[in-house]
C-alpha cells in the first residue's frame, strides 16, 4: 500500500496542452488515494519520440536532466502519467546501466546522476501498490452500466523483459481497475495494437487507418467509450476520430476517457478537477449510461471470442 508515500511527479509537456485533463485528473486521483506527488522543479521535455529517433544518448540526456531534478528533491522514484515519457525516462535508466553509455550521457548534461532511479507510470502504482481491491473500497459512485473498451497502447508494458509491468500481450491493469469501479469491461483483443503514435502530424492518413481499426472493433463490441492511459493514444482516438471516420467512410462517436477521469467520477471527486469538458467527443451520452442496468440493452454482436474471454476471466 502506497498511501502516504511521496513520489517525484513528471507531468510531461502534453499535460499542460493537449492532455491537460489527464494531468489534472491524475493529480486528483493520486491525492484521493494518498499517493503524494511532488512536481519535478523546472522539468524539461523528455524529447518524446523525436529524441530517441534522432539519438539515444541525446534522448537519455534529456531524461537524465529530469532525474537529476528529482535528486534535488531527494527523490529517486519518479511517476509520470504519460507512457511516452515513461518509456524515455525508463529507457534512460536502463541504458545508463550499459557500459560506456553513462559516460556519453554525462558528457552532455550539467549534473550527472548520483543515484539509482526507478520510473513508473501512475497507473502502475495505482494497480500494483494501491490495488484494484482497495480502489473498489473507495468507490462512492459505481460506474454500473458503462461498457468500456480498455486501450493500453504500445508502450506501457512492452517488451515485458524491459518494462516489468503487467502482461505484455494481455495487460489487465485498466480492465481490473475499471471493473473495480463497477464498469463493464469488454474483451478487446486489439488493446495494444498501435494507434499510429507520433505519425499524426507527419501523415495523418496513417493514424486514421490504424486508429480507425481500433474504433471499428470497439463499436462492433457495443462499447460506450474507450478508456485509455496515454495522451497520444487519446489524441489519436479522440481528436482525430473524425479523420478516422472520413478515412473509413463512416462516422464514429465514441468518447475516449482517461482512466483517471473515470476513477475520479467513481471516487466522487470534484468534477472540475476531471476536465471532462476537455474531451472532443462529447461524453454526455456515455456518462448517462451509468446507473442503468447493463441487461436492459440488447447484447451486442461480439462473437465466440468474447464469450470465451468472459468465461476464462469469470
Amino acid at each position: 500500500m502506497t498511501t502516504g508515500k511521496t513520489f517525484a511527479y513528471y507531468p510531461g509537456c502534453s499535460g499542460s496542452g493537449t492532455s491537460v485533463e489527464y494531468d489534472k485528473s491524475s493529480r486528483a486521483v493520486c491525492e484521493a488515494l494518498g499517493i503524494r506527488l511532488v512536481d519535478l522543479p523546472d522539468w524539461n521535455c523528455c524529447g518524446s519520440t523525436p529524441a530517441h529517433q534522432v539519438d539515444h544518448v541525446l534522448s537519455a540526456a534529456l531524461s537524465a536532466r529530469n532525474l537529476a531534478q528529482a535528486e534535488t528533491l531527494g527523490l529517486c522514484e519518479t511517476l509520470t502519467p504519460c507512457p511516452s515519457c515513461l518509456k524515455n525516462l525508463h529507457n534512460a535508466v536502463e541504458h545508463l546501466r550499459e557500459p560506456g553509455f553513462g559516460a556519453r550521457v554525462n558528457a552532455l548534461v550539467e549534473r550527472p546522476l548520483t543515484r539509482e532511479h526507478s520510473v513508473k507510470s501512475v497507473l502502475q502504482i495505482i494497480y500494483e501498490d494501491v490495488t484494484p481491491e482497495k480502489v473498489a473500497e473507495k468507490v462512492t459512485r459505481t460506474l454500473n452500466g458503462l461498457k468500456l473498451v480498455p486501450y493500453y497502447g504500445c508502450l506501457m508494458n512492452r517488451p515485458g523483459r524491459s518494462m516489468h509491468f503487467d502482461d505484455e500481450e494481455n495487460p489487465q491493469a485498466l480492465d481490473k481497475l475499471m471493473r473495480a469501479l463497477g464498469a463493464e469491461v469488454l474483451p478487446f483483443p486489439l488493446k495494444q495494437e498501435c494507434c499510429g503514435g507520433a505519425m499524426g502530424v507527419p501523415d495523418n492518413r496513417i493514424t486514421s487507418r490504424l486508429s480507425g481499426r481500433l474504433l471499428e472493433y470497439a463499436v462492433s463490441l457495443g462499447a460506450d467509450a474507450f478508456v485509455v492511459a496515454c495522451p497520444l493514444c487519446q489524441m489519436n482516438l479522440d481528436m482525430r476520430q473524425a479523420q478516422a471516420g472520413d478515412y473509413y467512410g463512416r462516422g464514429f462517436n465514441l468518447p475516449v476517457f482517461y482512466y483517471t477521469q473515470l476513477m475520479g467520477i467513481a471516487l466522487g471527486l470534484d468534477k472540475t478537477r476531471l476536465g471532462l469538458d476537455k474531451l472532443i467527443v462529447k461524453p454526455a451520452a456515455a456518462l448517462a449510461k451509468i446507473g442503468r442496468k447493463a441487461k436492459e440493452e440488447a447484447p451486442a454482436a461480439s462473437g465466440a471470442g468474447r464469450t470465451a474471454e468472459a468465461e476464462v476471466e469469470a
Binding site: G17, L58, L62, L108
Partner: peptide, 25 residues
C-alpha cells in the same frame, strides 16, 4: 476552444541547460 493549444510556450527557467545538452550533442 478547449484550451488545449496554448498560444505561448511553457518555458523553463534553466533553458540554457537544455540548450547546452543539444549544443554538446
Amino acid at each position: 476552444l478547449k484550451g488545449k493549444l496554448p498560444f505561448l510556450p511553457h518555458r523553463i527557467k534553466a533553458r540554457n541547460e537544455v540548450a547546452d545538452i543539444f549544443r554538446r550533442f
